[in-house]
Amino acid sequence: MNKQEYVKYVEDREKKSPVIKNSILAFVSGGLVCVMGRGFADLYKSAGMGEKPSVVLASVTLVFLAGLFTGIGCFDKVSKFCGAGLLVPITGFSNAVGAPAIEARSEGFIMGVGAEIFKIAGPVILYGNLTAVAYGIIYYICKCFEG
């Protein structure tokens, strides 16, 4: 068996992650996160806030909760079941920033927490910003033609 054959043999016999089950769990749990967000937004609205501030505050609440549960060590246990349902929404971003920060605490606040905090979320921030810039330029050009 040469290397290519071996790699193919290994890939063929490898047990794959249960995609359908994971997708359903992610769909349901991700949906629940959205329902929670909507719930918070409605709550803030009923407390007398405007539409925009209450939606922003709902996101902040979800980020806070995900950060809290990361800190007390149960986010990873729940997300093991929910998968992308918790990782793709804003909750996942909070976890991706919180988890390395907690762990880097042993190397101090500057070279530990400071340097490591965006280890996982860094690529999302960089390419998110770049995409926003690209989108902005395209939008600007389109506007020029329209005008």
Binding site: F75, S79, L87, A99, I102
Partner: peptide
């Protein structure tokens, strides 16, 4: 791999 509390599968 990843930090312990990171919720990866």
């Amino acid at each position: 791999r990843f930090p312990l509390e990171y919720g990866s599968l």
